[in-house]
């Protein structure tokens, strides 16, 4: 008889039970949603706050197969599903948001390199450390009017918002990792005739790389938050732009699929970073 006590550290539930337990909360959430939706539709058949399955299906259909309202593209009558999908609202929004996201991600690479230098070279530390510490505590969103002056209201202000919001935290985090590398290793490398750059790029950076990727994974969500904030403030396309527009007439039937889609995207990025980390650094345990 399997031990079913939840407070049993030695418990070894079988695979089926484990799977069932891990699905439980999903099922409960969906059940609660359905119940609320049915109850609200019973009171008001046109309720939009908690859309029913048919409304959601229509919303998904509109986002995946119909072009965005502001687009000039009109699909031909015989256009294939793929053709329609390529010009759909969600693809257009994902591409524009995705571009902003990836550019910001790329801009974090120099930040990591800088952090490596700050942690390793005393002069860099003296020059940057205090400022980054200070800057890290600045709430980036409150600087928006300044960002608008410097970067305009188009793409760059949104990217800048993400980078300014996330980079200082990343820099501080990576600096800590660099400092945690045992001093003995660095001394040893010097005795083996390494120069300063060898130590930085071949001893320290190799070791901290898996931690850096993990730190990045943790920062994916703040990045997405800043991206959403930026797109909601001023934009003419993007995932958060669409959500902001839909909110004006309670288009929850489109908003909910969008929210789930963003969650899926984030999960996939996180998953691929994790897989990459495991492939590249099989020696790393954490």
């Amino acid at each position: 008889m399997a031990n079913l006590s939840p407070f049993e550290i030695q418990a070894r539930p079988n695979r089926l039970l484990m799977q069932a337990a891990s699905c439980m909360l999903f099922v409960i959430c969906m059940g609660l949603y359905m119940q609320t939706s049915v109850r609200r539709h019973h009171e008001n058949p046109e309720d939009r706050v908690v859309p029913s399955l048919t409304q959601l299906a229509a919303g998904i259909h509109a986002s995946v197969l119909e072009p965005a309202e502001e687009d000039d593209y009109i699909p031909a009558d015989n256009a294939s599903k793929w053709e329609r999908f390529k010009h759909s609202m969600i693809v257009k929004d994902t591409i524009s948001s995705g571009r902003r996201f990836l550019i910001s991600l790329a801009l974090l690479i120099p930040a990591v390199v800088l952090a490596l230098h700050i942690g390793l070279y005393p002069w860099f530390g003296a020059f940057f450390m205090r400022f980054v510490l200070f800057f890290d505590k600045i709430v980036a969103l409150s600087l928006l009017p300044i960002l608008f002056i410097v970067f305009g209201i188009e793409e760059w202000s949104k990217i800048a918002l993400i980078v300014i919001g996330v980079a200082p935290t990343m820099i501080l985090d990576v600096t800590q990792m660099v400092k945690a590398v045992p001093q003995e290793q660095i001394v040893k490398a010097f005795t083996l005739d390494a120069n300063n750059f060898d130590v930085a790029y071949r001893v320290v950076s190799r070791q901290i790389m898996p931690q850096v990727i993990n730190s990045l994974r943790l920062n994916l969500k703040p990045m997405m938050l800043f991206l959403f904030a930026g797109e909601m403030i001023a934009a003419s396309d993007g995932l958060a732009y669409r959500i902001a527009i839909m909110r004006r007439h309670m288009g929850m039937d489109v908003i909910l699929p969008y929210v789930l889609w963003v969650a899926l995207l984030l999960f996939l990025i996180d998953f691929s970073l994790r897989t990459l980390n495991r492939r590249m650094h099989p020696w790393f345990q954490a």
């Binding site: 928006l144 608008f148 209201i153 403030i233 001023a234 934009a235 003419s236 732009y241 902001a244």
Partner: peptide
């Protein structure tokens, strides 16, 4: 059209 939040539209 550029959708701009009313709280930031003046500054922007």
């Amino acid at each position: 059209l550029i959708n701009t939040s009313d709280s930031d539209i003046v500054a922007a």
